[in-house]
Lab assay of single mutants.
Amino acid sequence: MLEGKVKWSNSEKGFGFIEVEGQDDVFVHFSAIQGEGFKTLEEGQAVSFEIVEGNRGPQAANVTKEA
């Protein structure tokens, strides 16, 4: 699992980007967020995730919010 911080997200469009130190930003779709209820990410929020190869390149999977 990698750790990063949410660079920005748009809940209306359903995606955002995660900033990882020393690496390119990672695309995240809201379907990759683990948990119940409305899935949102806040700018600056710490997250853990895996990287998978998506249709348009690397993207985050199994995203969990850190406490």
Rank of each mutant, 00 (worst) to 15 (best):
I18N: 01
M1V: 13
Q59P: 04
Q59T: 07
K39F: 08
S48V: 12
K65T: 11
Q59R: 11
G37L: 09
G4A: 02
D24L: 11
V20Y: 06
Q34I: 15
P58R: 14
N62H: 09
T40Q: 09
D25N: 07
N55P: 15
Q45G: 05
W8L: 02
E12I: 13
P58Q: 07
V20H: 03
E19I: 09
F17Y: 06
D25K: 03
Q23A: 10
Q45F: 05
K39G: 09
E12L: 13
P58V: 08
G16N: 03
F17K: 02
N62T: 06
L41D: 01
A61K: 09
G22R: 04
E53L: 14
E12V: 13
G16V: 04
Q59W: 07
F38K: 12
A61Q: 09
I18A: 01
R56C: 13
I18T: 03
F38M: 12
G14P: 03
N62F: 09
M1Y: 11
S9T: 15
A61N: 07
A46M: 14
F27A: 01
F15N: 00
F17G: 00
V63I: 05
G16P: 02
E50K: 10
P58E: 03
Q23N: 08
E42Q: 12
E36F: 11
W8N: 00
G54F: 08
A32Q: 10
F17D: 00
K65Q: 09
F17A: 02
I51K: 05
G54T: 13
G16S: 04
G37D: 09
V52L: 07
E50I: 15
L41F: 06
G44R: 04
K65C: 08
Q34D: 07
G16R: 01
E43L: 15
K5Y: 11
G44W: 05
V28Q: 01
K5T: 11
S11W: 13
L2D: 03
E21R: 11
Q45C: 10
E3V: 15
E43H: 12
F49A: 01
A60G: 03
E21H: 12
K13L: 11
V28A: 04
I33R: 00
D25Y: 06
G54N: 06
F17L: 04
K5Q: 07
K65Y: 13
V26T: 04
G14D: 03
G44A: 04
G22W: 05
K5H: 10
V63W: 03
E42A: 11
L41G: 01
V26H: 02
N55Y: 15
Q45A: 10
S31L: 05
E36W: 10
S48N: 08
A61E: 06
E3G: 10
G22C: 08
V20A: 04
E66M: 15
A32I: 04
F49G: 00
K39A: 09
A67C: 12
G14V: 06
N62S: 08
T64D: 04
E21A: 12
V63A: 03
F30H: 04
T40G: 08
Q45M: 11
V28W: 15
S11M: 13
F15A: 02
G35A: 07
K39Y: 08
V26Q: 01
E53F: 15
S9E: 02
V47Y: 05
K7D: 00
V20M: 08
E43K: 15
G37S: 08
K7Y: 04
S9Q: 07
P58N: 06
K39P: 10
G37C: 11
K39C: 11
A67I: 12
N62V: 05
L2Y: 13
V52W: 08
G54V: 04
H29E: 05
A61L: 07
I33L: 12
V28C: 06
F27I: 01
F38H: 11
P58W: 10
D24S: 12
F30D: 00
L41E: 00
N55C: 15
N10K: 05
V26S: 00
V20L: 09
N55A: 14
G37P: 07
N10S: 11
N62M: 08
I18K: 00
G16D: 01
S31Q: 05
I33A: 04
G57R: 06
E12K: 14
E66L: 15
F49H: 00
A46S: 12
F15K: 00
V26I: 10
V20W: 08
L2M: 11
G4T: 02
E19P: 02
L41I: 07
G44D: 03
W8V: 00
G57N: 02
E3C: 15
E42I: 13
S9A: 14
E19K: 13
A67W: 11
R56N: 09
V47E: 01
E66S: 15
T64M: 12
N55E: 13
G16A: 13
I51W: 05
G22Q: 04
G35N: 07
S9V: 15
E12P: 07
K13T: 05
A60H: 02
M1Q: 10
E53Y: 15
N10G: 03
V63H: 02
A61I: 12
P58K: 11
S11C: 14
S48W: 15
G54M: 07
S31I: 03
E12Y: 12
Q34V: 14
L41C: 04
L41V: 06
G4W: 04
Q23W: 11
F38R: 11
E43Y: 14
V52F: 09
V52Q: 08
A32N: 08
R56I: 07
V6A: 01
G37V: 08
I33N: 03
Q23G: 10
T64W: 14
I51E: 00
N10C: 14
V63P: 03
G37W: 08
A67S: 12
V28M: 07
P58H: 06
S31A: 06
V6K: 01
E36K: 11
N62Q: 06
N62L: 07
S9G: 05
E21K: 12
K5L: 09
F49N: 00
F38N: 11
S11A: 13
G4L: 04
I51C: 06
G35C: 10
A46T: 13
F15W: 14
G44Y: 04
S48Q: 12
A61H: 10
K7F: 05
K65S: 09
F30Y: 10
V63Y: 00
S31E: 04
V6C: 06
K5P: 03
E66D: 10
K39I: 09
G54H: 06
A67E: 12
K7S: 05
I18H: 01
A46W: 15
E3Q: 15
S48H: 12
F49P: 00
G4N: 02
I51V: 09
K5W: 11
F27E: 00
R56A: 07
G4H: 01
F15E: 00
F27L: 04
V52Y: 08
G4P: 01
M1A: 09
V6D: 00
Q45S: 08
Q59I: 09
G14C: 13
Q59H: 08
F38A: 12
G14R: 13
E3R: 15
F49D: 00
G54K: 06
F27G: 00
A60F: 03
S31P: 00
F30V: 06
S9M: 15
A46P: 09
E3P: 08
E42K: 13
V63G: 01
E43M: 14
K39E: 09
P58G: 04
K65G: 07
